[in-house]
């Protein structure tokens, strides 16, 4: 017998990456590696081929225009958080990005990895969903755009087909008088996986009431969850106690978490409510300030 070690490829264009991923069933995209390599160390086995996509310029590019943000799928979290424009336009997305792992891990971790790993507890996913982000996917039959909320099918499962990879994210420019926020709960102050995460985006009307809202919960269901009822509770309000209580109750009701080593069902449901109100307050204050 022989002991196989992995092949390593670093294509410099999207076509090259697609060709490798399409040709080899055992090929895996290596973006930041903070999930892929960890899973390998913990016994998942090394892939046949690592396809390092970080030498593809498009995957490392950041373009900010009046339409919004188009950002390469493999831009590391640290670079995203350091970008002052991103921080000021989408503070919630930036906060979520800044919460992914340690400073070191943020030097590697990427939104595409966070998304494609399809963990229910990913920090960036609820925040991206709250802002209406879209993933641009390239594959053997061309490109397609899938909104982040439709991307994950279940724990570890995504819409990606063989040969496909995420190349970019698009976030539409925030409407005037709108803002987002993201909060998560962890047992320590850092270095933990979210027990619950909550992303909220609100847009105010001319009178200062909430005209539209998005509430997204992480780690309380197989995938990050839009809580329509919580958003409805916020709409029309100026975050009066009744509205906040209703939104929290809606989040608690919508959460269908599991018991695991990071939290219990009862705890996660309660926290879903708490974080909904806290994130809503932050988003609301930010929107008022705009």
């Amino acid at each position: 017998m022989t002991l196989e070690t992995s092949r390593f490829e670093s294509p410099t264009d999207v076509e090259g990456a697609v060709a490798l991923l399409a040709a080899e069933g055992g090929a895996k995209v290596l973006s930041g590696g903070t999930d892929l390599l960890v899973q390998m160390r913990l016994g998942a086995g090394a892939p046949q081929v690592f396809v390092d996509v970080k030498r593809i310029p498009r995957l490392m590019a950041v373009r900010l225009g009046s339409e919004g943000l188009t950002i390469g799928a493999s831009v590391p979290a640290a670079e995203i958080f350091e970008n002052e424009s991103i921080r000021s336009l989408w503070p919630g997305v930036a906060e979520a990005t800044d919460l992914i792992g340690s400073t070191q891990v943020q030097g590697r971790a990427t939104w595409s990895g966070n998304l494609c790993n399809a963990s229910p507890a990913a920090d960036s996913v609820p925040a991206l969903m709250a802002c209406g982000a879209v993933a641009v996917i390239a594959g053997p039959s061309g490109e397609r755009r899938v909104s982040v909320d439709a991307f994950i099918k279940g724990p570890g499962k995504t819409v990606l087909r063989r040969g496909e990879l995420v190349v970019e994210f698009e976030i539409p420019a925030p409407p005037p008088r709108s803002a987002d926020a993201y909060l998560r709960l962890i047992p320590r102050t850092e270095m933990d996986i979210a027990v619950v995460g909550a992303g909220v985006q609100v847009e105010l009307d001319d009178g200062g009431a909430i005209a539209s809202a998005r509430v997204v919960l992480g780690a309380v269901a197989p995938t990050a969850l839009f809580v329509e009822a919580a958003a409805s509770a916020l709409i029309g309000s100026r975050l009066e106690d009744a509205a906040l209580d209703a939104a929290a109750a809606a989040s608690r009701a919508a959460a269908t978490p599991i018991d695991d080593r990071r939290g219990t069902i009862a705890y996660r449901k309660k926290i879903a409510g708490v974080l909904t109100t806290r994130a809503a307050k932050i988003a609301f204050e930010r929107a008022q300030a705009r």
């Binding site: 670093s10 590696g33 390599l37 970080k54 590391p76 340690s102 070191q104 030097g107 590697r108």
Partner: peptide, 26 residues
């Protein structure tokens, strides 16, 4: 070797990273 302790921190192209989560070929 899972990016949780920071003992293997290095700087790669100006960024602080855990060298356990960087492939040598990169």
């Amino acid at each position: 070797t899972t990016g949780d302790c920071g003992a293997c921190s290095i700087v790669l192209d100006g960024r602080l990273v855990p060298s356990c989560l960087v492939l040598a070929a990169e």
